[in-house]
Design a protein around this nucleic acid. Structure first.
Lengths: 332, 332
DNA sequence: GGCATACTGGAAACCGCTTTCCACTGGAGG
DNA sequence: CCTCCAGTGGAAAGCGGTTTCCAGTATGCC
């Protein structure tokens, strides 16, 4: 293991000088020395010991990202955006996947705190359980007290900078768009009641319907994933249009309908939410509400890194956009 | 920032004792002391400084994973498996995405070396360029000389423990299965010639065909991604069956055919390779060669962590399995 | 020519934790 | 009763960098 001291000795300079040359200091080093050091470093194959650097500097160059499931295209896109932004800052990303267990979310914040990461990014829906939320908050607060930076993608419930998608409004807009096509009887595959993202989208959708004087949708709860959509759609009765509160559920619903010989959109229309990448290759292509996932991931990094310069944590609202595709047809 | 020393002082014990209690040492600590220390740590909200720990121990608890693109379900599944296995060992995973740039692959190994990660996992196809390969190898060697462990998912070209999918054999088996259905005129969407995975699959397929006395397939090169498949399939002429060397390309091909009104499998059959997760929700469902991606990710972690106990780097062959689905139909 | 003023290089104090070595204690064994 | 040893707590030397002072040198200016 070649250390900075080895390099310094090999170059015939002091440790301080070698450090200044190799690890971006503000101090200038004379041209001759600098070249000697760089040459020695190359010859010896020196690699900075980041752990030592982190310890000495008191700040690391890694960003922690907490997601539910990397295989879910939603989080994959978020992670991709975050990693691109992180790289632009010269940071690496350390990922923790909770597989939807809030306890592990808390545990990961603790672990990332121990790693003294530069920033922590929390993504995915918050839950209604106030106990879980306050414990997560406490853990985040502890981290921030010691100089950590945090950003959240989802609901503004953690007292930290937040990228907040307009779930309610997006769902409402979708409802109006679908109603404009003539649909009146809806079903909502609403996900679990305790997930705020799911609840918000479901509520926004129902409210918009009510605002139009349309009957209440049939609401079916279930898991927030592909299989949850698959199961939930089986219980739909009498609706002409189904809204799944996220795309992966909608994909599951599509599969279930297909396997039962129900044609989409001829027999029933289906819409989702998020506009995840793989959607475009589905048949029929899925109507959805578009969220700029990659950008959101990148924004979260910027938000966390910029910190809340003297004041309140910032709240960034993200607009959604309804995208009508083949899975929905107008009712004549 | 509360340090171990703060805890020790608060508990009225020495630094050594506090360390032994809080960070799994082999040494025993008396019950009374132990409890005092644990209590103090909890009260003060102590979090180990992993950077300091890494420096002192000379070994970190993070694993580096290098992938091409997290949004690609292939790598997402690999990463998922790796993260599960890593967690079982109490490690975290740091991810680098190269977006298919071999230079960044090398750069990431260097960065991960600087981080002194416990192990580095390299995934994705190797390239034919010997210069790139040898430079990557050199970087890996440097890392291993200083005690790093490496595993690779792909071709055994790096001189490190490797999880090697049976690309050739899998493709050959697929060719025989398709031929058994009566197909004789094939096209191969072969990806870029310099990607060994693509080349192996393409070659295995063609060889099997030759072995059966069938005519050579039409080979079309192009990018290894979804859009590459989309474009390449446009050039197919006169084949009854198209083999895309990976699933994402096959998905692109399916989309292109659909948009041109070509029916699959009625007008033409399509097959892919990998069996990525989102496949099951496609219409038609895609015939492919199944690879246990999640397990491969986990195996890579185990392989790297276990090291090459006194000897040659290990080579783990991974079997593939042909999965016939709707996108292929028998030719009467 | 003399002196203030950059510049630049080096010595050494830390960053927070691990671990080796030492010292001390109390009980087993002779 | 003394010796030996297992068991446990503490002091202190690193781990590999960063950075603050200090000192020496060359430069600018009057």
């Amino acid at each position: 293991m070649v250390t900075l001291e080895d390099v310094a000795r090999h170059a015939g300079v002091s440790l301080a000088t070698a450090s200044r040359v190799l690890n971006g200091s503000s101090r200038n080093v004379g041209r001759a020395m600098r070249e000697r050091v760089e040459k020695s470093a190359a010859v010896l194959g020196y690699r900075t010991n980041v752990a030592a650097q982190t310890l000495a500097r008191g700040a690391s160059n890694v960003i922690g990202l907490v997601v539910h499931d990397l295989v879910d295209p939603y989080f994959a896109a978020l992670a991709d955006g975050a990693m691109r932004a992180a790289e632009a800052h010269g940071h690496m990303v350390m990922v923790g996947t909770t597989h939807r267990d809030p306890e592990r979310e808390i545990a990961y914040v603790s672990t990332l705190n121990a790693q003294r990461v530069r920033a922590v990014l929390i993504s995915g829906s918050r839950v209604t359980d106030p106990d879980v939320t306050s414990r997560l908050r406490a853990e985040l607060d502890r981290y921030r007290e010691s100089g950590g930076r945090v950003a959240c993608v989802g609901q503004d419930l953690l007292g930290v900078g937040t990228i907040a998608p307009a779930n309610r409004e997006g769902a409402a807009e979708l409802a109006r768009a679908l109603a404009a096509l003539g649909h009146t009887r809806f079903a909502v595959l609403a996900g679990p009641p305790h997930l705020i993202t799911a609840a918000d989208r479901s509520a926004g959708f129902a409210e918009a319907l009510a605002g139009l004087g349309l009957p209440e949708p049939q609401v079916i709860h279930g898991p927030f994933d592909r299989d949850g959509g698959y199961e939930a759609v089986q219980e739909v009765t009498g609706a002409t249009c189904v809204f799944a509160v996220n795309d992966v559920m909608a994909v599951g619903a599509l599969a279930a309908l297909r396997s039962r010989g129900v044609r989409v959109p001829d027999d029933i229309s289906v819409a989702g939410f998020d506009d995840i990448k793989p959607l475009r290759d589905l048949t029929p292509s899925l109507t959805t509400v578009r969220l700029p996932l990659t950008e959101m991931g990148a924004q979260a990094v910027e938000l966390a890194l910029s910190g809340e310069e003297g004041g309140e944590p910032r709240l960034v609202h993200v607009e959604c956009e309804v995208v009508l595709r083949e899975s929905v047809r107008p009712l004549v």
